[in-house]
């Protein structure tokens, strides 16, 4: 005769923990991985450019595009809550541009980027630049599937921009201190901003630029072109 199998189970009213281990940002990370895979399949280098509103991201991108578009095919995704102002400016420099309007979201996410990538002629692109929404907090959390992340600050944001927003620099591979032609007027020492960035992220590569006056942009563009090889 077969003996009845004993069953141990929770009793009525018993309290216990059940493991879920759900990554709450998993969906974004998964889509970002897919984006990266798709870009790599087409041999595209992608850079996510983050920074506050008015840091000079758009002007800097326009200048980078002007320099690099002589040799490489470039596409730019512009993230903003609304308008196509940035996209219109960058387009004139010779890049394929798509505007992503987030509506009310303070950052781009991997899903929005995936949608935009689908609209691009990927087999005709070498470099994808993504201009994130102007914000120094939320974009850091949401990876997009890019190979490098750049943070742009400007001297007009004051001498404490880096120390006040340390976390975004932990995410960055490249730091840019822009508008250096205004350093004396603003009483800001770019070297101090640079050492603050390096203290937070020891491996960060930092450039001092003035996108408007074409200072240091060539160096930055050369650095990016070396990544493309």
């Amino acid at each position: 005769m077969q003996r009845k199998t004993k069953i141990i189970e929770s009793i009525d009213g018993e309290i216990f923990d059940i493991e879920l281990s759900e990554d709450l940002l998993k969906k974004n990370k998964e889509i970002a991985k897919e984006n990266k895979k798709l870009l790599e399949k087409h041999n595209i280098l992608a850079i996510d450019i983050m920074g506050a509103i008015g840091a000079g991201k758009t002007t800097l991108i326009t200048k980078i595009v002007s320099i690099l578009s002589k040799k490489y095919k470039i596409a730019v995704l512009c993230g903003d809550l609304t308008t196509t102002l940035d996209a219109d400016i960058i387009k004139s420099a010779g890049a394929e541009v798509i505007q992503i309007n987030t509506g009310k979201e303070c950052h781009l996410d991997a899903n929005l980027v995936r949608k935009a990538i689908k609209e691009l002629p990927l087999n005709k692109i070498d470099l994808l630049i993504i201009e994130n929404v102007g914000n120094l907090i939320c974009p850091g959390e949401f990876v997009l599937g890019t190979h490098k992340r750049m943070v742009v600050v400007s001297v007009t944001e004051g001498p404490f921009m880096v120390v006040k927003h340390p976390y975004i620099f932990m995410e960055a591979n490249i730091g840019v201190i822009n508008k250096i032609e205004l350093k004396d007027v603003m009483g800001v020492e770019p070297k101090k901003l640079q050492s603050a960035m390096k203290k937070i992220k020891p491996g960060i590569k930092v450039f001092e630029t003035s996108a408007r006056k074409n200072i240091g942009v060539e160096l930055l563009a050369t650095f990016i072109s070396k990544l493309l090889k």
Binding site: S10, D12, L20
Partner: peptide, 12 residues
């Protein structure tokens, strides 16, 4: 950024 576990009670 994980929902590690839930504390539950078995309903009588």
């Amino acid at each position: 950024c994980n929902l590690k576990s839930v504390k539950v009670k078995k309903i009588p």
